[in-house]
Each structure stands twice: as structure tokens, then as C-alpha cells.
């Protein structure tokens, strides 16, 4: 048809625009050098403005789009988009402990002091965050950092893992929580999940003895089929429930032996009630 649009084709000197995809990841955010004398340079730079990193990440993640190909293999652009999206998810996974560290810096260095009288006021006013929330994040980050160092799964420690271990860290310290985690994570064939950690934490003895704790945890993992290729998926609800009941009763017995029980009348009533329930369980088997 068109003679004109054939005329001159390829002779215009037109070239492809050199720019990349408009939604391609932006260059790395340049962080300023640490100030002289800073104890821990590491990742301790300061972003130019609050939310800048998040904003850049938001801009980098492409808008949802229809599949561009029916082929099995991803094209170059699709691969870049996948990398960008996974980077965003990676940020989400690790953001909790970065936030915890940031909060601790603000609290310890009293960086809130220009506009707020207390750290609690600052958290509530600036981030609508309650005191317990802020302190939980602070507690989690230091534990998370330790777990990341000992985890055979590399950086796959999740917030839920850390949260399940917090009771141990609170009562017995971070060393104890790290030991519990390492004992579970390094057992053969065990897949670490938050549910498994919750069960393990439930059997940790009230009196902390590292050697005894390791033995108890290993016995627990073996008994419940966790070791040697076992996984939390193989545990039945019955196993989970009985483990918790058994651990709770053992803990109560220890406290009573040490004279830390409550009113003797109440204890006797509880024992009678428990015995009646146990009888019912036994009768249900016959």
C-alpha cells in the first residue's frame, strides 16, 4: 500500500531509546559515610529523609501487568521484575528487626528529645505504637541478629521464630534463647517452624540448666518424631496438646515441691478435678 512509508525506511538514523524499563529497580541508595568515631559503621548510615528507601522501593516495584508470554522461560524484563518483587518481599521479612534496632537507637540515644518528653510519647505520637509494641520490637531485633548468626538456614529466620523464642529470652536471657533455637535448628532432619518452636519453648524447664535443656529438647524431638527426618507436619494435634499438658503439669509439680504453690485447698481441689478428668480420658479408651 503505502509507498511513502517504505520510502526512507531504515535510512532516517532513528535509534532505539536507550532508557531502561520505567519500573526497573533504582540504583542502590547511597548512604553517607559513618561519622568519625562511630562504633559500628556497618549499615549505620542515615537516609536523607524518612520513608525515602520505602518510597524508592515502592516506585521500583512494577505495576501489576498481564502475562507477556505463554512460554515457560521468563524474558529478561520478567526476570528483572521478579528480582525486584522478591527484593521487596525480602525487605518485608527483615524489616521487623531493622525497625527494632532503629527504635533502640532512638530510645538509647534519646533522639526523640527535641519534640517529645519520653520515648513512650514519641512512639505513640509519631508511630501510633504502644510501649509494649516498641519494646517487643527492640527485644526481637537483638535476638534476631543472634539467631541469624547461628541459623543453618542462613537468613531464613522469621519474625514468628523470634517471637516464639522471646519468652525464653525474657526469663533466661538471649543466650538461652539462642541455645534453644540452635538445638532445634541443628537437629537432623528438623524443619524449624514457629509452631515447633512454640512447643519446644513450652517444655523448657523453669530452672535454666543449659545441658539439661538441650537433653530435654532432643528427647522431645525424638519422642515426637521430629528428629531423623521428622517434621512438624507429622505431629498430630493430640501429640501437641499432650505435650503442653504434660509440660504444664511438670512445671506445676516443681513449683509446688519448692513451696511456691498457692492455697493448699485450691491445690487439692485442682488435683481432684484433674484426677477426675484423667479418669474420664481413661474410661473413654475402654
Amino acid at each position: 500500500m503505502s509507498s511513502l512509508i517504505k520510502q526512507g525506511r531504515g535510512r532516517s538514523g532513528l535509534s532505539k531509546a536507550p532508557e531502561g524499563d520505567p519500573a526497573a529497580p533504582p540504583p542502590e541508595i547511597a548512604l553517607p559515610e559513618p561519622r568519625p568515631g562511630e562504633a559500628s559503621p556497618g549499615a549505620g548510615g542515615v537516609l536523607a529523609a524518612p520513608g525515602e528507601a520505602v518510597e524508592r522501593l515502592r516506585e521500583a516495584v512494577p505495576r501489576p501487568y498481564e502475562p507477556v508470554s505463554d512460554g515457560d522461560l521468563l524474558g529478561a524484563q520478567e526476570r528483572r521484575d521478579l528480582t525486584t518483587c522478591e527484593a521487596a518481599l525480602e525487605h518485608l521479612r527483615l524489616a521487623f528487626w531493622v525497625a527494632g534496632r532503629a527504635l533502640q537507637v532512638i530510645r538509647d540515644a534519646r533522639l526523640y528529645r527535641e519534640a517529645h518528653a519520653t520515648f513512650e510519647d514519641y512512639c505513640l505520637d509519631r508511630w501510633s505504637m504502644s510501649r509494649p509494641q516498641a519494646y517487643r520490637l527492640i527485644s526481637e531485633w537483638s535476638l534476631a541478629e543472634r539467631l541469624l548468626a547461628v541459623s543453618p538456614m542462613g537468613d531464613k529466620v522469621s519474625e514468628r521464630h523470634v517471637r516464639e523464642l522471646l519468652p525464653v529470652a525474657t526469663v533466661h536471657g538471649d543466650d538461652a534463647a539462642e541455645l534453644v533455637y540452635a538445638t532445634v535448628a541443628q537437629a537432623d532432619g528438623v524443619r524449624v517452624t514457629a509452631e515447633l518452636l512454640r512447643d519446644v519453648v513450652a517444655i523448657v524447664p523453669t530452672q535454666w540448666d543449659p545441658a539439661a535443656a538441650v537433653l530435654i529438647i532432643r528427647e522431645f524431638l525424638d519422642r515426637d518424631g521430629q528428629g531423623d527426618g521428622g517434621s512438624v507436619g507429622r505431629r498430630s494435634p493430640f501429640q501437641t496438646q499432650t505435650t503442653r499438658v504434660r509440660t504444664g503439669l511438670a512445671d506445676l509439680a516443681t513449683r509446688l515441691r519448692k513451696g511456691k504453690g498457692g492455697d493448699p485447698e485450691q491445690v487439692r481441689a485442682f488435683v481432684a478435678d484433674a484426677r477426675r478428668l484423667l479418669d474420664q480420658i481413661e474410661q473413654s479408651m475402654s
Binding site: 526512507g8 525506511r9 532513528l14
Partner: peptide, 18 residues
């Protein structure tokens, strides 16, 4: 191209884009 002092005239280039 911002660095091009003599930008291509679109009347010359359009045939290549159809």
C-alpha cells in the same frame, strides 16, 4: 537524546516506526 544538538526530525523518522 538530551545530548543531541541536532535532534532527528520526526518527519524523517516516522516511517521507521510504522
Amino acid at each position: 537524546n538530551p545530548g543531541d544538538d541536532d535532534p532527528l526530525d520526526p518527519t524523517d523518522a516516522i516511517a521507521d516506526t510504522i
